[in-house]
Design a protein around this nucleic acid. Structure first.
Length: 153
DNA sequence: GCCAACGTTGGC
DNA sequence: GCCAACGTTGGC
């Protein structure tokens, strides 16, 4: 079992939006970064747990817990000329972008803010907190996951 | 709105 | 293959 952190701008799609989906599930379309794609395509397994992270907002931080709800499959938006995520170099025979479905798993009692994460010496090595990191999908260690989960209780 | 970090593109 | 230019991310 692997652990992940996935960023989303809450103005666009929040953890609450995920919870309110009819099946509490959302296809994670639109990732157009190779490293992030590789995490989804190569390393994610159904049942892996995810921190749903709110970015580019008033209080950035971990908003809740989700899980990987599908095997990886080609992101349909890459083939859709009308989509902002359309990729003219991708074909159905050789898709370029892969994704998974993400499902609501559990609420946290409170949002664990980025500021709070930065205060914790236990998390000093966390990838999210390394300078210059902009990846929208990041691996989280089991230790980091358990620690942050407790902060949200 | 600013800016640092860094990925991508394209000319050579 | 190099590297400058450019675009994007995301915290502040």
């Amino acid at each position: 079992m692997n652990y992940w952190l996935m960023k989303s701008e809450p103005d666009v799609f929040s953890f609450g939006d995920l919870k309110n989906r009819p099946k509490k599930t959302e296809p994670w379309t639109g990732v157009r970064n190779y490293q992030a794609r590789n995490f989804m395509r190569d390393d994610m397994k159904p049942g892996d747990l995810i921190f749903f992270y709110h970015s580019s907002c008033e209080i950035p931080g971990v908003a809740g817990i989700a899980s990987v709800a599908s095997a990886p499959y080609p992101d349909p938006t890459q083939f859709d000329k009308k989509s902002e995520y359309f990729d003219p170099k991708a074909t159905k025979e050789v898709p370029r972008w892969f994704m998974v479905d993400v499902k609501f798993e559990a609420d946290l009692k409170k949002l664990v803010s980025l500021a709070e994460l930065k205060e914790k010496k236990e998390l000093s090595k966390m990838r999210l907190l390394q300078p210059g990191n902009r990846l929208s999908i990041l691996p989280v260690t089991q230790e980091e996951f358990d620690f942050i989960k407790k902060l949200g209780r």
